[in-house]
Design a protein around this nucleic acid. Structure first.
Lengths: 338, 338
DNA sequence: GTGAAAGCGCTAACAC
DNA sequence: GTGTTAGCGCTTTCAC
């Protein structure tokens, strides 16, 4: 490995000068700089980022902790987060906790403050308390996609108004004339998706439609689970004219179940989800959903985290993310019943 | 930040002893060790991994470079790779090159040999030559999923017999009696999927079925593209009884297109893909495909890379991955024509 | 067993 | 402008 001092030697200067060339070139006389740059090129010098991190006291790396990257929502978030981080001069380290709080805690302890200058946490496999404890004696931790704007957590967060997303979904179904609706509620780690279903139900109730408890299923987040749950739902409540799922995976699974059952979507039954993952528009019929603007949230999260690193004090403890937006596609239509 | 020497001071020993305790050298007297451990706990000490990396000359981090994590294949690979890395005591840094060779090269230059002890490259946005150049003066680089076992690259690689995967797909369709088949060939970065289609065509040809060139479409890797291409294909060659796609995304898109066109899958047209991504079994009808054993390949890649780091010499330059396997599901059936 | 000391490659005062 | 110097936090000989 070629080091700074080897470059220095070859350019007949000292390490300090080489370092100066590498960062603030103003201090260095052009001809010296040129000699140094030539030495760098000749030797194929590449700075050792660990040494730099140690000396600077910062690693220029951000960590993103998420439970399981195989949920298609995460890759989309990761992609946007990585771009934002790169643009700001940071690396992004993706830490999969594999749905295991123990692994999450281990990662946090090892990484925060050493390998990473700040940590973005996507969900709470890890108890908030643990996160707080870690945050106090190491690097800033930011919760991305906090679901409850009305009750800020102990940690700084990006809040997303998921209740509003539920409302929008409900309004859309109500406008289409649906009154008998099935609900598929994803678990998303510790009842995370309550806000969505509560927002939905509150809006329905305001319109005089009470949720039929037998038509409310609480399930794991996946297409499979959505499919199975929808099958079960249609067996018990064959007369629902619409299905609301708290996320797109469930909704996609549900739509497929309906088609398998010979129920046309949306002619017989409408389906609506929340999130607007890529799959939502690639599936047929394309899914109507409430977009939460994943990429924007990812960027906002990264930017907020960086601000938090640079000026830990005087940062808002909660940043409100972009408002959810209804995206009407082909899976919802007017209620044909009666 | 609590440092080693603070711990040492509190335990009335020196940094060397604390370090010995941390790496359970047997040198330390139990009572001393206990005192040290107590000090560590009291102070909440956590080692600075950058300092350790600098001192040890290794970072215990592996990098995984891929073009775009939003292709659902990658998250599955990442998940398995991350598990394998963690099990071996390494962190995994996921580097999204965003389909941009420039970004890829920049990552490689910055990371290889400093932040990462070794690099796994998933595709060749970056020219093999660049990779070789980088490999020689920094950390080992391993190509995961090399598609051409018959022509080993300059770099160590995990080879996957994709031609065989194509063969298996062809055999399956032939056995079902299909003779008029459409081909959807994904681009996967620089004609990466040629081996698959060549294997497929060779097998078909051996059975006396020549590819109808109008029924061969070369397209981008995505559900959307598969959908569009299939639409186009069916317009030109409405009589095909089966469609082979070089990857599952295309196949899934194709199946949806067929359903949209009112062609039953598999009763009117069979569809088969390659890879066996998770989506393949979650979609309805579930996709028949040739599994390449993504998780196994990921593990193998990580293990090989680690071996390469530990003993750069005398490692096989090409490791053959697990053989592809046909997975029959619901999207293929006997040819009904005539 | 434990400590002293050197050094990993870099940055950042501060002299000159 | 450039060099000198002193670390960053840790590991690792090598004395004792």
């Amino acid at each position: 490995m070629v080091t700074l001092s080897e470059v220095a030697k070859r350019a007949h200067v000292t390490a300090a000068t080489v370092s100066n060339v590498l960062r603030n070139r103003e201090k260095v006389r052009p001809e010296t700089a040129e000699r140094v740059l030539k030495a760098i090129a000749d030797l194929g010098y590449r700075p050792n980022l660990n040494a730099r991190a140690l000396a600077e006291g910062r690693s220029s790396t951000l960590a993103l902790m998420l439970s399981n990257i195989s949920n298609p929502f995460y890759p989309e978030f990761v992609l946007a987060a990585e771009r934002a981080a790169r643009k700001a001069g940071y690396f992004l380290m993706v830490c999969n906790t594999d749905d295991d709080a123990e692994i999450g805690r281990a990662y946090l302890n090892q990484i925060a403050g050493t390998l990473a200058d700040g940590v973005l946490v996507m969900n709470t496999d890890i108890a908030i308390n643990d996160l707080c404890a870690s945050a106090t004696h190491s690097a800033p931790i930011l919760l991305a996609m906090w679901e409850h704007p009305e009750t800020p957590p102990e940690l700084p967060c990006i809040a997303v108004d998921f209740a509003r997303a539920g409302e929008l979904a409900a309004q859309h179904l109500l406008e289409l004339g649906h009154r008998e609706v099935g609900l598929l509620i994803g678990d998303g780690c510790g009842g995370l998706q309550d806000a969505r279903s509560n927002g939905f139900r509150a809006t329905m109730r305001a319109a005089g439609v009470e949720a039929d408890t037998a038509a409310v299923l609480q399930i794991r987040d996946s297409i499979d689970a959505g499919y199975a749950a929808c099958m079960q739902l249609m067996a018990v409540r064959p007369f629902v004219t619409a299905i609301f799922a708290t996320n797109d995976l469930l909704a996609i699974g549900a739509a497929q179940a309906l088609i398998t059952l010979g129920r046309a979507v949306p002619d017989d039954v409408s389906v609506i989800g929340i999130t607007d993952i890529q799959l939502a528009h690639q599936v047929h019929p394309a899914l109507t959903t409430v977009a939460i603007q994943t990429a924007e949230i990812a960027e906002l999260s990264i930017e907020s985290l960086i601000r938090l690193i640079q000026a830990p004090e005087r940062q808002p403890s909660m940043v409100i993310g972009p408002p959810p937006q209804l995206v009407v596609r082909a899976s919802t239509g007017p209620c044909r019943r009666r």
